[in-house]
Nucleic acid binder design. Structure first.
Ligand code: MN
Ligand code: MN
Ligand code: ZN
Ligand code: ZN
Lengths: 154, 154
DNA sequence: TCCTTAATGAAAATGATTTTCATTAACAAT
DNA sequence: ATTGTTAATGAAAATCATTTTCATTAAGGA
């Protein structure tokens, strides 16, 4: 729960001429303390408990900003809303990918084989950069399937 | 341009008790003749030229259906609308992945290293299935970056 | 040709995200 | 500590993709 006072964020913010506000600290705090992949509205509701006067609009605005700054990642898991995750968080494995249950929509972080995946990705990235004259900045890997519980309910 | 009369689709449709209609043939025809990843509205506009009385709602409904049938794939590339692609098309490489320019939003199909990617994915899928008791049915791999043209405009 | 009902199209509804605009508050300068 | 500048905010309205509703049409088996 020291997330909101992380000096690196402060530095990052101030460098850009951005101010450190209550809503911003609150949003980072929420993301810092969850293992989930929250939507804007979920983050809003969570922030709202402690700061009832923070608006949903502000949450959206700051999520966009934090993504641009490379502090959070935005995902589309196919349920029609964007979901966000702190890139460096005590609650998460390091670099990981996602397993999505198309039944119950749960999202599982995994890092099995991530080293090997990264190794191949690095190779592919180099090849693609050369072949398509394209500078790669990131990737998304997601597996879709049915979790154990959902398989039971068929 | 024989897409719309593909006997396999016909069989597929009839098996499900589904009727073969003009809008359906038109949508498949459009997807069969493009190398792009069209949105529902883009497909609608294209269909509209030949069949001005086909509505956008019908396009949405049939895209959903075709996806369930495994005939087309639906993607989220981050521009706020879903995009669709025929899974087997004369206009496309076989199994491929995507390279997305965050500048101009263009999408490049690639199949360099796809065999190796698939090989690793298969391995990862098996491990994940076992470790998380999860039955994997599909995956998404996307690379994000900046294309040559967009790099020039910085 | 007739009948059943799957499929359609127009319009309205929904739901996530963005825009507008008047007000507030962060923080650098005093 | 006080003040001034302007980045940031919140409420409400607007936007935009997608879905729902419902009356009408037409595929295709009988
Ligand atoms: Mn995650
Ligand atoms: Mn493609
Ligand atoms: Zn599940
Ligand atoms: Zn580009």
């Amino acid at each position: 729960m020291n997330g909101k006072n992380n000096p690196e964020w402060h530095r990052n913010f101030r460098q850009r001429g951005m101010r450190i506000t209550e809503p911003r600290k609150a949003i980072l705090e929420v993301l810092n303390n969850t293992t989930e992949h929250l939507s804007a509205e979920e983050i809003y509701m969570s922030v709202h408990r402690t700061y009832p006067n923070v608006g949903l609009t502000t949450v959206y605005r700051n999520l966009e900003l934090l993504e641009e700054m490379g502090i959070i990642a935005k995902f589309h898991f196919g349920d029609g809303r964007s979901r966000y995750e702190l890139i460096h968080s005590p609650q998460k494995p390091g670099h990981h990918h996602h397993l999505i249950c198309t039944g119950c929509k749960q999202i599982i972080d995994y890092d099995d084989f991530v080293e090997e995946e990264i190794e191949l990705l690095t190779k592919v990235e180099q090849a693609l950069s050369a072949a398509h004259n394209f500078q790669i900045t990131g990737h998304t890997i997601q597996f879709y399937g049915i979790c154990h519980a959902c398989r039971g309910n068929l």
